[in-house]
Design a protein around this nucleic acid. Structure first.
Lengths: 350, 350
DNA sequence: CTGAAAGCGCTAACAT
DNA sequence: ATGTTAGCGCTTTCAG
């Protein structure tokens, strides 16, 4: 009497124990094994049986238990993706490229975030590997020894992405940041700039930014020049910091004629500052960033930058994993993409 | 030496059976059960035995199999988080709040992205529930019937976030977007603006943006006013679109004195356009966005906006899940946060 | 086409 | 403090 559900509440009472194949089996009068076959579309099952099972499963609201399934079949449709951050716009774009491809292959992306810490990366990898994924994609080539050992021992495809300046555990897909820095330096020098400053982030573990700066300085050095002034920031809005740092840098070094920024947000801040101060860009001073983020499209002037091929990197990496899973042993691949310079309106035409 | 892999050629992954507890057991001479205890820090184990096990596990590079562990213990330290997008800056911030709290409780965040599609949300939820997570956090209150049924039947804590204008499956944490729109309208009216336009995104499934506009219009209506002109955009850089749409809107309706934007990026684009055109902001025209994203800190003028309490929402939602797991049945909670108005410099002082 | 039996690798619950 | 015994819910394998 009191147990009777009210007419207005046709929803099934949440079961105390999650449903199992057996429940569907009993409800449909079909053996567990055949139910399993129907639910996985595997093997031949007669149409009437099939319908009975599907109906019962839907009525009950059965959701299969992948934990049991994975244990029994020794197969998991998960691919781990390890990146430093989600707030950097750049990484969601890589992820997009990855999941575009993985989805087609029926693989599920699992994301892990390291906050640019190798120690945390190690934990995240351990956690991921404990779920026995079909593959791992990890940003960067710098890892702890333990992380590298884990990855090597996992016996699954591993793709390190975004950078090719180093030795991969298995495969790698990315650009040379050393070369990117070098190319930007050459472009700047060709345009006639000579007194060059740098603004970056205080991230000791952002190895890609570090490599860009190294390549940049190497190219300047070959031309007999150096980076005359540099500043690094830590935390806060990158756009705002770009403004402040540009102001501070130009105050200290009024004769700089170019500022190379480690990313587009800093560069955008610098650009806004200069325009507000009535400083002639790119005449009096030139600016460049890195990444070609979408934001720069809406700025008063198009910031010079470089395409970091994020989407493409994601896609190619995912293809390696998907192919590896399809039986084709595609390990040990090295794919280097070409980062194009987008000169925009903040570098003088040569 | 014939086995030596040529560079560039697919080198086969060393065939290896993943390590099991038994391997560690044999290597250390300790029973599987005790090894398991050591690795989980559970039960009393003598220090010498403990060390032997730890050493063996490390030597072998053993990574436990959580699939088996979860099946046996009927416990999974995973919490599913379902959000529409990762490129909207806003969602990574919610995620940050969530994982801050979950990490402390030893829970792992698993992210699913719906691309603002209810059909895809349903798939993502199904996929997640099949891993039997300890809880689910999902953005928004609008779901397919099947999704709602799944969530209700899962028998785990479910928290719907970011919105409180509706009926939750279980708990909800968010702000009233209806109220947010209304409050902004009141602020604008108090400041004396009367000819008001709106710019938004063409997202039929962004229910929160829709509710804000509804609340906004309701408040205008009560004051005997209406939104005189509106435009919606689709795809592309939001900042750039904000510029273009503002230009177009002001061209068509030169006598507008305020533009309310469905988000800060659009508003920022509008602001940049106005400043470039020498239009007096906030004198000639006022502007407002929504979300209080970090970006607006670096703009030439601080855009008026509203704090959407993202971090806090994430934290509170995660706390409900963590508490629910700790045995305290905290279901059916409703937490409404207060979205503060940040008037910035783009609304006249009353 | 369908079913019965035997695990997958681990842990809960008891022994000892 | 350590070992033994049963499964967890599913899939593989092999028989009907």
């Amino acid at each position: 009497m009191a147990e009777q559900p009210k007419p207005g509440q046709p929803r099934p009472i949440p079961p105390r124990r999650p449903l199992t194949l057996r429940d569907v089996s009993e409800r449909s009068g079909v053996s567990e094994m055949t139910v399993s076959r129907v639910l996985r579309n595997r093997g031949d099952v007669s149409e009437p049986t099939r319908q009975k099972v599907l109906l019962a499963a839907r009525d009950l609201g059965y959701v299969p238990n992948r934990i049991a399934g994975a244990l029994a079949s020794q197969r998991v449709n998960l691919v781990g993706v390890v990146i430093p951050s989600l707030s950097n716009q750049v990484f969601p774009e890589v992820l997009q490229g990855i999941s575009d491809v993985l989805e087609e292959s029926g693989l599920q992306t699992v994301i892990g975030v390291t906050r640019y810490s190798l120690a945390r990366e190690e934990e995240v990898l351990y956690e991921m590997l404990s779920w026995r994924p079909s593959g791992i994609i990890v940003a960067g080539l710098e890892h702890s020894d333990a992380s590298r050992a884990m990855l090597a021992a996992a016996g699954i495809p591993v793709v390190e992405i975004m950078d090719v300046n180093g030795t991969p555990v298995d495969s790698m897909v990315g650009i040379s940041h050393h070369l990117a820095g070098r190319r930007m330096a050459q472009t700047i020098l060709t345009a006639g700039y000579r007194r060059i400053g740098f603004l970056g982030t205080k991230m000791p573990d952002d190895h890609r930014a570090r490599k860009r700066l190294e390549g940049f300085e190497a190219a300047l050095c070959e031309a007999g020049l150096t980076v005359e002034a540099r500043d690094f920031y830590d935390g806060g809005s990158a756009l705002q910091k770009g403004r402040e740092m540009t102001a501070a840098l130009l105050q200290r070094h009024p004769d700089l004629d170019f500022i190379y920024c480690s990313n587009d947000m800093i560069g955008a801040g610098g650009l806004l500052h200069c325009l507000e101060q009535g400083i002639d860009v790119p005449g009096r001073i030139g600016l460049a960033g890195f990444n070609a983020i979408e934001l720069i499209q809406g700025l008063p002037r198009r910031l010079a930058t470089m395409d970091s091929c994020r989407r493409e990197i994601g896609r190619r990496a995912a293809e390696i994993i998907a192919a590896g899973r399809a039986g084709q042993a595609r390990s040990g691949q090295v794919i280097e993409l070409e980062p194009a310079i987008l000169p925009g309106d903040t570098i003088r035409r040569a």
